[in-house]
Design a protein around this nucleic acid. Sequence first.
DNA 1: GCCTGATAGTTGATGATGTCAACTATTGAC
DNA 2: GTCAATAGTTGACATCATCAACTATCAGGC
Lengths: 139, 139
Amino acid sequence: MKYASSHACDAWRLLVRFSFAQRAHLPLLAAELQLSPAQCHVLRLIEPGRPIPMGRVAETLACDASNVTGLVDRLESRGLVRRRPSGADRRVKVLALTPTGSRLRALLLDRMTTPPATLGRLSVREQQALVRILTRLLG
Amino acid sequence: MKYASSHACDAWRLLVRFSFAQRAHLPLLAAELQLSPAQCHVLRLIEPGRPIPMGRVAETLACDASNVTGLVDRLESRGLVRRRPSGADRRVKVLALTPTGSRLRALLLDRMTTPPATLGRLSVREQQALVRILTRLLG
DNA sequence: GCCTGATAGTTGATGATGTCAACTATTGAC
DNA sequence: GTCAATAGTTGACATCATCAACTATCAGGC
């Protein structure tokens, strides 16, 4: 994107800056729930009732498959997650939340997605515009 | 913010989702520059010509001070960063970029803030609106 | 059926990240 | 000057993350 408009560059810079600012919150939030940031990422990816193959987790986190093995080992030993064989392919193991894991995940997502006070600086109209724009951007 | 509008919640959810999506890019980008994600964070915080105390880095990254010691040890051994005593307080050590570190940081920031093609989905008007809204949000 | 190559996950080795407690040096207030 | 507080380091330890080697399974061709 060498020829992106300056508006696009500015917008992207702001989004990246937001991501970095946001990054600092996760360790604190994770610690409150006795989790590590990496474990939060894994937990976030396992939606209740939607088991996900381990390889897909590695792919989404852009990390090595053996790293996921260790992360899941710890989550499983804490009773938050279960490995189950995939029906379609016996090489694949899918990850499912236990009831405890499901509750913890809900708590985690709830705290992560609670908007901070600074969002109140925006008018309702601006909030709507932001939702519309981000939806197009991420969709 | 229990009483935040649903628009605010939606907007925040999208921003958080963006942060997570963004998170996966850093390891790849960092690896290209022979850096780890954590080292990128430190490098990003040291602006050229603006030495920063180590404690401030720890505070911004929301991590222990001893962690910064190790990170800076590795950056310094690679000749990217220098520890210097602070004039005002002899307990404090400030971090400054070497010329090599400064160049690498510029390269890093350049790659991080290059907008992806998906920003092209937005009209110029939407890009302007996004910049305006994010500026108010982060300011 | 039987090779063969590719894929999913695990294991072991190794280095990096991150926390904690204990320590040194310095500061600032009394 | 004494004493609590602060900045940074050190050492011990768990976790994160990668790589290479391995097992088991799959999918294709013959």
